[in-house]
Write a protein that binds this DNA or RNA. Structure first.
Length: 637
DNA sequence: GGAACTATGAGACTATAC
DNA sequence: GTATAGTCTCATAGTTCC
């Protein structure tokens, strides 16, 4: 279901999207002291010189990822060479320690103090980061602002501002970690107003900030709520300070402004999320165990189904939401996903209970659990049922009845040839070592027996059938065979998802308005259609043109009566666009999405970076958009 | 130049034995 | 409870082919 297929239809998509370029601009603009209008990627001289030497760019990226400035890293590499990373790190740490504020950086300090950060904090951060990289300084300042304050225990009740609510919800995610005993007594909303003002000023906020926060949040607000408010205001102020030439339009009516603010926040929250994940990893706290059997709240063949649960209040719709990703993600990932999605318990389900192939996935949703029903007819549940012709050639020592997870790649012809040769002239019972080799490869590549001693990977249409898509769903229209495998490998298993979504049928007899993020080849759309739930209006967001064409083609072939709008990039979906769409449709009933798993999947040997990964970090866009939809829905009610 | 092909483990979980 | 082996994984990068 992810949309990141690198080869998708000539979609060697550059993930340095507009937003990321904007971040780059942000950094450069602040570094050079020159305001650069958004939308243009401009390289500063330091960056240009660094990028010129591509050989050490990986090393540079590595250390920049740790938070050191590019200039500093480049200098350290120049001194030590790029071979000895330990030496480089040591030098970088020395640089960080030795850099101290001087007259030369007084302007810089003033700059950040002007944004509302305390002078003491700015000096400390400049010492830590060096004065060369202002975006790093800003990030750290934002982090410190949150770390040194108790985080909010709950969202603003009456902020009346979507973005504020949205940010508040993310701040909530760290409330249990960053609270300190020193502030405990002030967390009580009953503390008197004067004490709270005093405490806020002691924390480094100005009297004006504290007073405004008190005025806006009310005298009964907790310190957490007040600091939350001030923090949000500071971030907005920071964005304003860095983009002074932009029109100062009201926040809610300025999409660029909102976007930037989201970006500022995005940087901050990602950093937070990394820290949180590290803590979870180190402490192994709240370990999330995958269930065995992996049947979630129940599958059609299971008698003991769970039909009731209590949802956290913040998770209750509208809209209903349904999020999916790989179950076997790196440690800590599902804790983070759950935390960002209202602390909801994921439902881990293996699609082998629905079809002949395994597909272990986690789903977080706020759908009811009672009265689920499966798609009929039931798909074949075993390999032999799915592919009867293989039965004739299937050796007795291959005991598989289910296929493993259908991946995006298939076995090579060379491998199947090696297997054929290994089995030749060995009769029906080859030596155990040969059996073991063949079975290992068959399991790894989902090979099936198509002749004597002959195994073969599945054809794309066979994968379509296993995943519950109509035959030829991904065929033709300009898609290559390789891309068919890739798109299918990234998609939902339709029967599994349909089972979960089936509860919507009685609730929306007249049809449903769907926001489908990371649509892929339209697994959710196909599932709803097969359930007989009319699709009134569908906004499908999918990066791959090939996949968008597949969904569009399916839409037309199935004579849908509703409206399909496709949008290429989730990061283009800002508050204004959403509001416009929702005003047109009357809101979304369901927000579905399976964000990219590239950096989570075990198959990825190169960049299994977790939720901070280049593609998988788009999970946070799912959260962002869901939160915006909730806000707009609430406001329109 | 694009599509097809090929080689490439690590990390996390599970089952089993002790 | 601990150690070990076995198993599985929505992939990526480089090369070859057409």
């Amino acid at each position: 279901m992810n949309s990141n297929s690198s080869g998708g239809g000539g979609d060697n998509f550059d993930w340095d999207t507009e937003d990321e370029l904007e971040i780059d601009n942000y950094a450069i603009a602040s570094h050079s002291g020159v305001t650069i209008p958004t939308g243009e990627a401009v390289l500063g001289s330091a960056e240009a010189s660094l990028s010129a030497d591509s050989s050490n760019s990986k090393v540079i990226d590595h250390f920049v990822g740790m938070g050191f400035s590019k200039e500093m890293v480049a200098k350290a590499i120049e001194e030590n060479g790029e071979e000895n990373s330990n030496l480089i790190l040591e030098t970088l740490l020395q640089y960080s320690a030795s850099s101290s504020p001087s007259s030369s950086n007084s302007k810089l300090i003033d700059h950040f103090v002007g944004m509302g950060f305390s002078e003491q904090m700015v000096i400390k951060v400049v010492q830590e980061n060096g004065e060369g990289n202002t975006d790093s300084i800003l990030e750290t300042l934002l982090t410190y602002s949150a770390l040194e304050k108790p985080a909010p225990m709950q969202q603003h009740a009456d902020s009346g501002n979507c973005s504020s609510d949205y940010e508040g919800s993310f701040l909530d995610d760290f409330s249990d970690i960053y609270s300190s005993s020193e502030t405990e007594e002030f967390m009580n909303p009953d503390s008197d107003e004067e004490s709270k003002l005093l405490f806020l000023t002691k924390m480094g906020y100005s009297e004006a900030e504290a007073s405004i926060a008190m005025e806006r949040c009310g005298p009964d607000s907790s310190i957490a709520e007040l600091t939350d408010f001030i923090c949000a205001a500071q971030m907005a102020k920071a964005a304003d300070a860095l983009f002074p030439l932009e029109d100062k339009k009201p926040f809610c009516n300025d999409s660029n402004h909102k976007k930037r603010r989201n970006l500022d926040y995005d940087l901050w929250k990602r950093k937070k999320q990394m820290k949180l994940q590290k803590r979870l990893l180190d402490g192994a706290e709240d370990a999330l165990h995958l269930p065995n059997p992996m049947i979630g709240f129940g599958v059609p063949t299971d008698i003991d189904q769970i039909t009731h649960r209590t949802l956290p209040e913040t998770a209750i719709g509208p809209p209903y939401f349904y999020y999916e990703n790989v179950a076997l993600a790196p440690k800590g990932v599902w804790q983070t996903i759950s935390r960002f999605l209202y602390d909801m318990e994921p439902e881990f389900v293996d699609s082998k209970y629905f079809c002949a192939a395994a597909r272990k996935r986690g789903y977080v949703h706020n759908l009811p659990l009672e009265n689920r029903f499966p798609l009929l007819p039931f798909p074949p549940r075993t390999i032999h049922d799915a592919f009867p012709l293989t039965r004739k050639w299937w050796p007795s020592w291959d005991t598989r009845t289910k296929l493993n997870c259908l991946q995006t790649c298939t076995a090579s012809a060379k491998l199947t040839d090696r297997i054929r040769k290994a089995l030749e002239n060995l009769g029906d019972e080859p030596p155990l070592t040969v059996q073991k080799f063949v079975l290992e490869e068959c399991r790894k590549w989902n090979l099936v027996w198509v002749g004597r001693n002959k195994v073969a990977p599945l054809e794309p249409d066979e994968v379509e059938m296993l995943l519950g898509f109509p035959r030829n769903h991904t065929r033709g229209g300009g898609i290559s065979r390789t891309d068919r495998y890739k798109s299918l490998g990234n998609s939902f298993q339709v029967d599994t998802v349909a089972y979960h979504l089936s509860v919507l049928k009685d609730m929306f007899p007249g049809g449903i308005n769907l926001l489908s993020l990371f649509s892929g080849i339209g697994g959710a759309e196909v599932a709803l259609h097969r359930l007989g739930i009319p699709l009134k209006n569908v906004v499908s967001v999918e990066i791959s043109e090939v996949n968008r064409n597949i969904v569009r083609s399916w839409w037309e072939q199935t004579n849908q009566k509703g409206t399909l709008i496709d949008i290429p990039d989730v990061q283009q979906l800002n508050g204004d666009r959403l509001e416009q769409l929702m005003n047109t449709f009357g809101g979304f009933d369901l927000v579905v999405g399976g964000s990219p798993c590239n950096n989570l999947a075990g198959s990825n040997r190169h960049h299994r970076d977790g939720l901070e990964g280049k593609e998988s970090s788009l999970f946070f866009d799912y959260c962002r958009i869901l939160e915006l939809v909730k806000c707009i829905s609430a406001r329109n009610q």
